[in-house]
Design a protein around this nucleic acid. Structure first.
Lengths: 228, 228
DNA sequence: CGCGAGTTTTAGGTATACCTAATCCTGAGT
DNA sequence: ACTCAGGATTAGGTATACCTAAAACTCGCG
């Protein structure tokens, strides 16, 4: 088991591939070449090549033409990156004046450069938070993660009152708009009304009503409980 | 002038070369290929190749077989990296529990990953410090740097009393030992005695005397004033 | 059951940034 | 002035990680 060795030797690219594949395979579903390519903004051909190498290295399980899954080792590496990314985001927001729409890009670069030592210091200073500024759960240093059940706001039925859990990072302009509506993790909202055929919905946030399109509704994820 | 463009596009390697060359050329002396190779732990052949490319890019002045100097643009880029490195060190020591012997390695990686925005936030939180934990001056964001006159402790005459200005970073074990003697920037010491032929010297630091070899004496730089 | 649209892989090429080995300078010492 | 040791460069090769274009596969639909 050369895990400890590879631990140090994963390249930036490899780290990004593993993270992307993790994000694309909820509960062990296989991720396709083109999904990975799209997420990383690379050509499918490039992904094919890298996937081949990574599976030879034992980080991926690859069934040609069928998709890939992380091995235990690949998953560990992916969660390590996720922990870094999310702790860095939390730190930058808590101590260095970042807002949730600007923090992703910075963390994306820093996550490849920080040492394990630094990551654990950040965690300690933050008091070992469970979630990052977007509400995404932070894996523990042992590689455990609690993915809370959540559904997109776009699927919450009319009349339901729910709590915002997570808001998808990565699109600063949307995040800014969402923040301007008062929507952020922990906030409660009520779906007043919704139009059929993926039409817009009306929501109530802290007494204010807003109309939201389907696209934005998919970005906001809510706790899947239905009580008031 | 494509400076702004290149600004974003310098690779890690290029940044390291420029920084190394800056450190190797006090007041415009030329740096040799082998000096650069030694500092970056690369083969001279690799340095030759890179130097050629960098001078074609206008970052270096290269006289074949004679050595290299930074152009104004190269110097700007080098000072930008130095500012990053030193501010990161200062921040890690001030807020994240790093000591001066452990901070160099971390900063060496982070300096390539931080944005200008983050660097300026660090500077602001630190109150725009003038020096880093090793006493090295921090360039301003405009690229000005005040290199204070200093001489190695190994050249301070017997009987003189001087203030420690800087201690060379990069060798954690030495830094730890030096710290254990109470030597750090700002501390005053008196040279009690020194042996000829680069022999050891006896110094007094805050009432304690210590014997120091020549090698260590070169790592500690002192303000070049001679009063008590 | 076979066609073909779309996906995936392979083939071949580029850029960066290293390396070793071979060759080429330069200048210090006779 | 010449030699030659040591420093610098060139020549040629490797690894990573991309790309485009072409070939190979899969699967739904007629």
């Amino acid at each position: 088991m050369n895990a400890a060795l590879q631990h140090e030797t994963l390249t930036r690219s490899v780290e990004d591939y593993l993270k992307a594949i993790y994000r694309l395979s909820p509960q062990g579903r296989a991720a396709s070449t083109s999904e990975i390519a799209q997420r990383l903004e690379l050509s499918p051909a490039s992904v094919s090549g890298m996937v081949k190498r990574l599976s030879e290295q034992g980080l991926l399980e690859h069934e040609p033409y069928r998709g890939v899954q992380l091995t235990a080792e690949g998953r560990r590496a992916a969660l390590r990156m996720l922990r870094r990314h999310r702790l860095i985001e939390a730190y930058l927001v808590a101590f260095l004046g970042y807002t949730w729409d600007t923090v992703h890009e910075e963390a994306e670069r820093l996550e490849h450069a920080v040492s394990d030592t630094l990551v654990e210091r950040l965690a300690a200073v933050l008091g070992n938070p469970a979630v990052d500024p977007h509400g995404d759960p932070i894996p523990t240093s042992e590689g455990d993660i609690a993915e809370p059940a959540s559904i997109p706001l776009s699927e919450v039925p009319a009349g339901a009152s729910v709590e915002v859990r997570q808001v998808e990072e990565g699109q600063p302009d949307r995040l800014r708009y969402i923040a301007s509506l008062g929507l952020r993790p922990g906030v409660r909202l009520t779906v007043v009304d919704r139009q059929p055929f993926h039409g817009p919905m009306t929501i109530d946030v802290a007494g204010q009503t807003h109309v939201i399109g389907n696209e934005l509704g998919q970005v906001v994820r809510c706790a899947s409980d239905k009580d008031a």
